[in-house]
Computed example of a mutant assay.
Amino acid sequence: GGAAPLDLGQLAGRAAADPTLEPGAPRSAIPGAVPSTGSTGTQAVIAASPRDEYNAALALIQRRDYEQAEIALRGFLQNHPRDRLVGDATHQLGETMFQRRQYREAAEQFLKVSTDYPRTARAPSSLLRLGQSLNALGEREAACAAYAEFNRKYPNANASTKTAVVSEQRRASC
C-alpha cells in the first residue's frame, strides 16, 4: 500500500493516549503493527529489538506473505538504518519483490546489497538474484555480467550458490 513506515516511538505514545485501546485490547488495533500468526489466529507483534523486528519480517516471508513482508522490511530499514542486519534485510526486501515478479525493483535491491554490503552473508545470493532479475527483464548481457562478477567476487561462496550461478549462466546462454 501507500502507507509510510511506522515510527515505533510515536506508536507507543499514540497507543497510550488512545482511549479506545483498553489495556487488554488486542494489538491488532494498533495501526502499522506487524501481523503474526499465533494459536489464536492473526495478532500483532510489537518488536522489542531490531532482531525481533527482522525476524518478524522473515516469518512473513516463510509464510509467503510477501506484501506484508515488504512492508515490515521497509519499516525495519527505516527504523534501523545503521543496524548490522541492514544488508540482509535489503536482500530479503529484494526477495519479496522477486517472488512477486517485480524484477526491476528486486534488481535494485539486490544491486544495493552487492555494492553497499558486499561482505554480508547474503551478498553472494544477492548477486545471483540480481542476475536472475536482469535475465527475467530481458537484460541477458547484464545478467551474464552479474554472474561473471559473482565468480570474481565470491570464489569461496557456498557450493549450492555456485552451482546455481553455473546453471543460470547456461540458462542465459552466457
Rank of each mutant, 00 (worst) to 15 (best):
D18S: 11
Y66R: 07
F76N: 01
F110C: 02
T42G: 00
G2E: 11
A148E: 12
Y147P: 04
A16E: 11
E168R: 06
R74D: 10
A136H: 00
R140V: 08
D7G: 09
D116W: 06
R64G: 05
P124Y: 05
A145T: 13
D65T: 06
A59H: 00
R51Y: 09
E22K: 07
A157D: 12
A89G: 09
P23K: 08
A69H: 01
N79I: 05
Y117I: 01
T40E: 14
R27M: 08
T90Q: 06
Y117F: 14
G1H: 10
A29K: 13
A56Q: 02
E149L: 15
V165F: 03
A157V: 14
C174R: 02
C174P: 07
S36H: 07
E108G: 09
A12I: 12
A142P: 05
L73C: 06
P50R: 06
R170E: 08
P35H: 04
A143E: 00
R14Y: 09
T96D: 04
T20K: 13
I71C: 06
H80P: 03
G94D: 04
L58T: 08
E149Q: 14
Q169L: 14
A121W: 07
D7L: 12
E70Q: 11
L11R: 09
A16G: 09
S160R: 13
V113D: 03
A121E: 11
I30T: 09
G2H: 10
A48D: 13
L130S: 01
V166E: 06
A172H: 02
R84D: 12
R129Q: 13
R122E: 13
V34Y: 02
T161K: 02
G38D: 15
V86D: 00
A123H: 08
V113Q: 02
V86E: 01
I71T: 15
H91R: 13
M97I: 10
A25E: 13
P81H: 06
T161E: 11
N135R: 15
I61K: 01
I61E: 08
P5N: 08
N135F: 13
G24E: 15
A136Q: 07
A172Y: 03
H80V: 13
A146L: 03
Q62C: 03
G87Y: 00
V113R: 02
A145P: 04
S39Y: 09
R122W: 03
P155R: 11
E22W: 05
R171V: 02
A57Q: 06
A157Y: 05
T37C: 04
A164S: 14
A12T: 04
R104W: 03
L77K: 04
G32C: 12
E95K: 05
